[in-house]
Design a binder for these strands. Structure first.
Length: 944
RNA sequence: GGGUGCUUAGCUCAGCGGUAGAGCGUCGCCCUUACAAGGCGGUGGUCGUAGGUUCGAUCCCUACAGCACCCACCA
């Protein structure tokens, strides 16, 4: 083995070997265990969130595979309608073309070409993280099989009356030219104004002032609404008003929706461009007037002078004209919530358009069949409420159920070209025909089409196909083999449905609504099963200061840069490349030069993964600090060097598989006991998804017990006279190392595999690589609780001596005399047992006992129970310093004793506390008193 | 307006009813033949504030303060 751990070297080959060996494919044996990868966008590159999430999934998958489960990690990518279309449109823009110049077919072809070339970027990056996924079953949401599933779902829901087409007010993104769903709109607080505008009654006798944040929409007003009980306006209800600038007349109506105390208590009603107004318009049977074109300019329904004006220019013009007419009463600053498109940042314009919807709200359809609420929404709610699907941490279940309780119908049509084209056709009379293809649509209809059929131009929301992921990837709805784009068999519903439901979905809280809920809906409806049993909501990765990572802040980290390292200049270059605003660019550059003056050090995949594990508590955010990752790289190095030590010392002779028949030394029995406990803990932490505890348990075992104590204790055994002890110790060194490599493999697969390559053969193991080894069962390790007490005693003695050495500045290399005094029979036995190890590790001469009552030299002492562990002062130790040290120790223990006495002196405590707590307290005070007596005796001997 | 979290050592976080913990940082001594990415030892906290329950509260309850995030139609 190399002298130190070099991640780049060992990571380069193992992944390809694992994949080629078929280790990532389901074994076909054991209970099925499936995890679905949330399919990343094909446009994407791996970010810290992915790396974290995928590490979690990979740990679970590798663990379950080792435990013998029939394990499938289903991977794939998402076609990401808007994001992907935008990338190719941007490329066209460079050629000064738009998608319309190419036409639909040529454009879609070009997107496919882009996907072929660039779509595997992220999956290749996943391989660098070590993701043990079954790539032979990789799917794409627009591949043939998944597209067939999408069509079937659309058609079935349409025929069940659960998908409908309607002219509805939707969130319209004027920049992208498409409708988006409620979820794709963010409400952002912006500084704006509140304008008050006077509307006169037709007879000119009265007027009323409305307050609005969007004065330009007055061009589409159809009424002014007031509260029915608002005395100020009661006399105006039913009267007609002049709508300024338009020549139109509109009524004053009464509606409970209006808040008397907000604004002026009078609301202009623009049903075509506001969701509330739309509802009011419907209640009062007022026809909406659309005043915007699809790119948010004023249309022909408004007075001619505004035609073609952009909505913000129109606002200025309308305000100026109102001002001129003396109708603008007041302008004041006002903070408001502006709906912004998540995808384009454009301000959303509610717009009346023809769209397709999934019904999620109606109880019963007009023809008596169950509506969407009954058929789709409620089963999804029940799955979580009944506990069939469990959220981890569980409070996320609230978030889920609350959203479903208040859900709206889902707008699924998008005015894009890249995506699943809606399988609906229209005849010349506007009748709708739905089917697999034109012929099927025609054949399935009750009526004959009028004239030619034309397919709907729209595509489906990307999340529509994502919702089917749990079963569409397994081959549904086909009964036989499903092939991918390259003609390889990827799925077969008839045999693969054993993987439904999957065991756990690992995902971010931000897509509980977008994806998790919709998978439950679709999977329940079409298969009758739940899609997954548990949903582990992973934390959001932030920077070391807890700030959200964003490119414009310059605090993003590329996981691959952490793995491979990157020098300062290339890092500055790649971080600022895509930033167009010079000020932002300068700020980002400055920050990076400050944060990473020497670039980012290479920490390797394993250390990165261990860091993710160590940070993965139930907290909803994790702050990623490179310092921490460097610490875990040190851990990898520690493990590496421990393995080197073991390999150097075990010699060439082989050992039998399994534990030594009878471990000879106390240290062996102790480390095996601790191994057993650690393995049991790790299994618990896998069940509860506490990867932080899991990582910590393994870290502590390896570093603080195996390395710090067992390896150290093995040295005297290996070099001592007892051949049996030496042989047994060699075996145990190897056995424990091999077990811990297996336990660590799900977390740090590369380094453990590399080390195992040399360790496995020493134990005569036949597997070709660690990935094929079974999980180390705690039950297979023999514990000896008594050994724990022995080693604890030993550690206390050794720590006592070390403390004296350190505090008295005795050079570590100097061999010193050692005396024991007092103590009970077990101390005598233990000293006899451990004398050689103590001398070896504490660098002392052979210890001597001082008989009770005999003279003893002035010494520094540590106390372990009743035993005094003494180092004679002569020439080594400053008497006064030792007296002070003792006094401090005595003081500390007196405080503890007083605490105990306080408790035990409280009659209520003794009467009410559980007996074992009281007993424990009594034992504690006895122990403290023993120690105190020994310390006092020692102080007295020093003349203190 | 609803909802969900968080507040513990200088920093980042575990713990969550019975002696306050880890990593990093910091201080001291050591290149001791696995490891200086290391070893040994030390320093450092009235567990946000105020009440309550309890024999006992960092942990449970209530209120308050501060900080995040999610949902929602206030023009």
């Amino acid at each position: 083995m190399e002298k130190s751990f070099e991640p780049a070297q060992i990571e380069s080959t193992w992944y390809a070997r694992w994949e080629a060996s078929g280790a990532f494919r389901p074994s076909g044996e054991g209970e099925p265990y499936c995890i679905l990868l949330p399919p990343p966008n094909v446009t994407g590159t791996l970010h810290m969130g992915h790396a974290f999430q995928q590490t979690v999934m990979d740990m679970l998958v590798r663990y379950q595979r080792m435990r013998g489960r029939n394990t499938l990690w289903q991977v794939g990518t998402d076609h990401a309608g808007i994001a992907t279309q935008k990338i190719v449109e941007n490329q066209l823009a460079v050629e000064e073309k738009t998608r319309h110049d190419l036409g639909r077919d040529a454009f879609v072809e070009r997107v496919w070409k882009w996907k072929e070339e660039s779509g595997s970027t992220i999956t290749n990056q996943m391989r660098r993280i070590g993701a043990a996924a079954d790539w032979s079953r990789e799917r794409f949401t627009m591949d043939e099989g998944l597209s067939a599933a999408v069509r079937k779902v659309f058609i079935d829901w349409y025929r069940a009356g659960l998908i409908y087409r309607g002219n509805r007010l939707v969130n319209w993104d004027p920049a992208l030219g498409t409708a988006v769903s409620d979820l794709e709109v963010n409400n952002v607080e912006r500084d704006g104004h509140m304008w008050s505008i006077r509307y006169m009654t037709v007879d000119g006798a009265a007027s009323l002032v409305v307050a609005t944040t969007r004065p330009e929409t007055m061009l589409g007003d159809v009424a002014v609404a007031v509260h029915p009980e608002d005395e100020r306006y009661a006399h105006l209800i039913g009267q007609m008003l002049h709508l300024p600038l338009t020549g139109r007349q509109i009524p004053v109506i009464a509606d409970e929706y209006v808040d008397k105390d907000f604004g002026t208590g009078a609301v202009k009603i623009t049903p075509a461009h506001d969701f509330n107004d739309y509802a009011i318009g419907q209640r009062h049977k007022l026809a909406p007037i659309t005043i915007f074109t699809l790119d948010a300019r004023i249309n022909d329904n408004a007075p001619e002078k505004y035609h073609g004006l952009d909505r913000y220019d129109a606002r200025k013009a309308v305000l100026a004209d109102l001002e001129a007419a003396g109708l603008l009463v007041e302008t004041k600053a006002h903070k408001l919530q502006v709906p912004v498109s998540q995808r384009s940042d454009a301000v959303i314009e509610p717009m009346l358009t023809d769209q397709w919807f999934v019904d999620l709200t109606s109880e019963t359809l007009a023809d008596g069949r169950p509506g969407g609420r009954k058929a789709i929404t409620e089963p999804a709610l029940d799955a979580v409420r009944s506990g069939q699907i469990r959220f981890v941490p569980e409070n996320w279940a609230n978030t889920y159920t609350q959203w479903l309780d208040n859900i709206q119908d889902w707008c699924i049509s998008r005015q894009l070209w890249w995506g699943h084209r809606i399988p609906a056709w229209y005849d010349e009379a506007g009748n709708i025909f739905v089917g697999e293809d034109e012929a099927d649509a025609r054949a399935s209809a009750n009526t004959a089409p009028v004239g030619a059929l034309r397919q709907d131009d729209d595509v489906l929301d990307t999340w529509f196909s994502s919702a089917l992921w749990p079963f569409s990837t397994l081959g549904w709805p086909a009964d036989g083999p499903v092939k991918n784009e390259r003609g390889e068999i990827v799925a077969n519903w008839a045999q693969d449905k054993i993987f439904l439901p999957s065991a756990v979905l690992v995902t971010g809280f931000d897509i509980i609504f977008f994806w998790v809920a919709r998978m439950v809906m679709a999977t329940k409806y079409f298969t009758g099963k739940i899609p997954f049993r548990e949903v582990y909501i992973n934390a959001i990765v932030r920077d070391a200061e807890g700030q959200k990572m964003s490119k414009s802040k310059g605090n993003t980290l590329d996981p691959l840069d952490l793995i491979d390292g990157i020098a300062l200049e290339p890092l500055v270059e790649k971080s600022t490349k895509s930033l167009l605003i010079p000020q932002v660019r300068a700020k980002v550059e400055k920050r990076i030069r400050k944060d990473y003056p020497a670039g980012i050090p290479a920490i390797g995949t394993d250390a990165l993964r261990f860091t993710f594990a160590a940070l993965a508590s139930y907290s909803r955010t994790i702050n990623f600090d490179i310092k921490r990752a460097e610490g875990y790289k040190a851990f990898c190095n520690k493990l590496w060097n421990a393995a080197r030590f073991v390999l150097m010392n075990v010699g060439d002779s082989g050992f039998g598989i399994g534990n030594p028949e009878k471990p000879v030394t106390e240290a062996e029995r102790w480390i095996l006991t601790r191994l057993k406990q650690t393995l049991a803990e790790v299994e618990q932490h896998f069940v509860s998804y506490r990867f932080d505890h899991l990582a910590q348990a393994l870290y502590e075992f390896v570093w603080n017990e195996y390395c710090d104590w067992f390896l150290e204790l093995s040295k005297p055994a290996l070099n001592g006279d007892d051949a049996a002890a030496a042989a047994s110790t060699r075996h145990t060194l190897l056995v424990v190392l091999e077990s811990v490599l297996r336990a660590l493999h799900p977390v740090i697969p590369f380094i453990t595999e590399e080390i195992w390559k040399d360790v496995g053969p020493k134990l005569g193991l036949s597997e070709e690589s660690l990935i094929l080894r079974p999980w180390p069962n705690a039950d297979d390790v023999v514990a000896d609780e008594a050994a724990t007490g022995e080693i604890e005693w030993f550690k206390n003695v050794l720590s006592g001596i070390r403390k004296i050495r350190s505090e008295m500045n005795i050079p570590p290399g100097k061999t010193i005399p050692l005396l024991f005094a007092d103590g009970d029979a077990s101390d005598h036995a233990r000293v006899a047992k451990f004398a050689a190890q103590i001398s070896f590790l504490a660098r002392t001469e052979t210890p001597q006992w001082i008989d009770a009552g005999a003279d003893e030299p002035a010494s520094a002492a540590a106390v372990v129970g009743a035993l005094r562990v003494m180092i004679p002062l002569a020439g080594l130790i400053d008497l006064e310093a030792e007296k002070a040290r003792l006094a401090k120790e005595i003081g500390r223990i007196e405080v503890e004793i007083r605490k105990c006495e306080g408790k035990l002196g409280n009659a209520n405590f003794v009467a009410n506390a559980p007996a074992e707590v009281v007993a424990q307290e009594r034992q504690r005070i006895t122990d403290w008193n023993t120690t105190l007596a020994a310390l006092r005796e020692q102080a007295q001997k020093l003349g203190g």
